[in-house]
Amino acid sequence: MALTREEREQFLAEPHVAALAVDAGDGRAPLTVPIWYQYAPGGDVWIMTGLDSRKNRLIGAAGRFSLLVDRVEPTIRYVSVEGPVVGTTPATVELLREISARYLPADKVEGYVDFAWKDHGEQVVVRMRPERWVSSDLGSV
């Protein structure tokens, strides 16, 4: 059964690891990789990735990408969202901290942020405006 707008936005706002997909060009299947993301209902989705990464280059060329999040308990539920890139900005340590706190235990955030800020190279934040949604709750198995 399809989710309501409220249900799908709330589900996307939960801290799931997403599968990001972006067009990889002629003769190639889409690039699909796991990624952390941030979202608040009614807003844009954002991800953080390396400035020089293949993912960032492909997103820049395509001008859009999609995310898929799912779970299998207590019911099988998924949300897929796709839309245009509406902005790319340099990452900040504050945004790195925000997205890290979404996925890591509180006592691990600062250590990870220190490591990632020093070792991951230059990062960018890519914002996507949700335009097309596909969602369902298939119930329990």
Rank of each mutant, 00 (worst) to 15 (best):
A24E: 02
A24I: 02
G25M: 00
G25I: 01
G25R: 03
P30G: 11
P30T: 08
T32C: 04
Y37T: 02
Y37C: 12
Y37W: 12
Q38M: 13
A40G: 06
A40C: 08
P41R: 05
D44A: 15
D44H: 08
W46P: 03
I47K: 03
I47P: 00
G50Y: 00
L51D: 15
D52V: 12
D52E: 15
R54D: 15
K55M: 13
K55N: 05
N56S: 15
L58Y: 00
I59R: 01
R64W: 09
D70C: 02
R71Q: 15
E73A: 15
E82Q: 14
G83M: 07
V86L: 12
V86A: 12
T88S: 14
T89P: 05
T89E: 15
T92W: 09
V93L: 10
V93P: 02
E94P: 04
L95P: 08
L95R: 15
E98I: 08
E98K: 10
I99K: 01
R102Q: 07
Y103K: 09
Y103L: 03
L104S: 06
L104D: 11
L104I: 13
P105S: 06
D107R: 14
E110P: 02
G111L: 08
D114Y: 05
D114G: 10
F115H: 13
F115V: 03
A116E: 04
W117D: 09
G121S: 12
E122F: 04
Q123P: 09
R127H: 12
M128I: 05
M128W: 01
R129Q: 08
W133I: 06
W133A: 05
V134T: 11
S135G: 11
G139H: 13
